[in-house]
Amino acid sequence: MANPVTEFWRRYRRNGAAVVGLAILCVVVAMALSAPVFFPTNPLRLVGPAELWPLTDARFPLGTDSLGRDIAAQLAHGAGTTLIIGLVASLVATTIGVGIGAAAGYYGGLVDDVLMRFTEIFQTIPNLIFLLALVAVLGPKIEHVVIGIGLISWTSVARLVRAEFMTLREREFVLASRAMGMSDLRIIVTQILPNAIPPVIVLASLIVAGAVLFESALAFLGLSDPNIASWGGLIGEGRLLIRTSWYVCALPGLAILLTVLALNLIGDGLNDVLNPMLKNR
């Protein structure tokens, strides 16, 4: 078999939409990485007249917001924030979900019952309300936002991992591992988990997209961290001027739309690549 990376790319390439998604994501990442070069000063500084429309002033190609801050700078810096919020929240969700799902699926019985009831409770709580309550209580800081999003997103991972573990634990190589005296933890981590991971990766990429949306929803309601430039923050900022200077909301909104779309397309692509591999492994 060919090198796994080239093999991966060969299969991924077959899904055209997924390649477009990856390209959009690359642009967003490039934006985030180059922000300090093109906009070396703090993007939250007041630099010009307020509510300057895009394409009217060469210094501010995308205009300024209600306080006279450069929207282009905020978008560029916000790209990094948004991506990090998405990634870290997805990481938190995946970690919790894998832990709980693995234990429930591997041990079954009472452990499974208890953990799944717990998961169901979390599932029935309305996500946004839980998030709002959490951030309202703990304060609108970026860490709280990330943890909150992680806490509302892990249940789907847990259910997926549980199902994967339940089928994999019946496989004979797991039995063989037990026969040689391997500990449960070691079986879970070194034997079953690597086999259960591909579908989790697909789901994790979708959770990143979900997290980006949650963050902007929070920000729209004015509950994002005011001290860090983010796309959501900009939307929250523009919310009050939506009738007059709608571009303040529309520009970061478009960025979010494209990023979420890209992440979903990438998730589809990963699914195409990883799942057939699962079938003929």
Binding site: R171, E172, F173, Q191
Partner: peptide, 13 residues
């Protein structure tokens, strides 16, 4: 020790 039936399922892929 044990040898299993299914040569596909008994080895960690």
């Amino acid at each position: 020790q044990m040898i299993f039936q299914d040569p596909y399922a008994s080895l960690n892929p």
